[in-house]
């Protein structure tokens, strides 16, 4: 990234820590502090939040285009704060996975197979970061969640505690659903029946994740789920910066605006705003992907029709 200058005294800003070398002022990273991406068939927002010093979340979206006759693709990653260079880890994972997904879909892999390939590619790329700069003994790591929306399926893949939700529009028959289960200490002790959800949530280990991308000597195990919705709705994928404030699927669904199907960027902005208003203690990243066969057929473009066998 090219050097940035301090708006207060026009001196060089230290690239490593973003403080002005003359007046000490902290200068925002214009590239990462607030990211909004709208590719038409999906949109997303990533925000530094109100407490953190930098945005260690990353967001990547790929929309359909004439040359990429596939679907809407979104990836959200959350850099593990206690790891080295978590911001680089999440950005690398999101971008590598996005490219991998697009290529895999173009070469006629199923969305589920493409997701697995993408997660492995991202894992490898994050692990490789350990050799590319200082780690202070701790290797770069991040979470991962992806969504692929085609004409008739929704496929999500994840590692860690970033989540995906299926939110049908109000008049549809199906109920809002969380599609992911967290790779976290909390989820494990609750599932094992050791602690109640309330007891586990009060524990300091509640947010400790049990799986991530990046070198830790273990092969990453992607979770992949595909659903075939019977009506229109939106897929929301997000980091814990959002779901910390909207833990139940009902709360989250209630916060999704009615216009989400037609205005995914507005919906993503709205959800990020909810987290910011609630305190914004962590970085917040949300992507919204509309699913509606009538939209696909009628309003967006003919190339959204799935060509995957």
């Amino acid at each position: 990234m090219p050097g940035q200058f301090c708006p207060h005294c026009a001196e060089q800003v230290c690239q490593r820590d973003r403080y002005c070398e003359q007046c000490g002022a902290w200068v925002a990273d214009l590239r990462r502090d607030r990211v909004e991406i709208d590719v038409g068939v999906a949109a997303g927002v990533s925000d530094r939040g109100r407490r953190h010093h930098r945005n260690e979340d990353a967001l990547a979206l790929r929309g359909s285009g004439p040359s990429r006759n596939s679907a809407a693709v979104a990836i959200v990653c959350d850099g593990v704060s206690s790891s080295a260079r978590p911001d680089e880890a999440s950005e690398t994972a999101a971008e590598v996975a996005a490219e991998s997904l697009v290529t895999a879909l173009q070469t006629h892999n199923s969305p589920a197979a493409a997701t697995r390939l993408a997660i492995h590619a991202a894992d490898k790329a994050v692990a490789a970061l350990a050799d590319a700069g200082p780690t202070g003994g701790k290797t770069p790591a991040c979470t991962f969640v992806s969504a692929i929306v085609t004409g008739n399926t929704v496929t999500v893949g994840w590692v860690g505690d970033s989540r995906a939700y299926w939110i049908p529009v109000a008049h549809a028959n199906s109920a809002p659903t969380r599609l992911t289960s967290d790779d976290s200490w909390l989820a494990q002790v609750v599932e094992a029946g050791i602690l109640s959800p309330a007891q586990a949530a009060a524990d300091r280990r509640a947010h400790t994740i049990t799986a991530w991308l990046g070198e830790d000597g273990q092969q990453v195990e992607p979770h992949v789920v595909t659903i075939e919705p019977d009506g229109p709705g939106v897929v929301v994928i997000c980091t814990d910066g959002l779901w910390n404030y909207l833990d139940s699927v009902e709360e989250l669904a209630a916060a999704v605006p009615a216009q989400a199907l037609h205005d995914p960027l507005g919906a993503a902005r709205r959800l990020v705003e909810v987290a910011l208003r609630s305190g914004g203690r962590d970085n917040i990243t949300v992507a919204v992907l509309p699913f509606a066969s009538d939209l696909v057929d009628a309003s967006i473009a003919p190339h959204l029709a799935m060509t995957i066998s």
Binding site: D17, H53, G136, K138
Partner: peptide
């Protein structure tokens, strides 16, 4: 190397004490 604890309890390590 210096450990820095954010107000929310998360920690960062930097090669200088900030």
């Amino acid at each position: 190397v210096f450990r820095h604890t954010e107000p929310d309890g998360s920690t960062n390590e930097f090669p200088d004490a900030r």
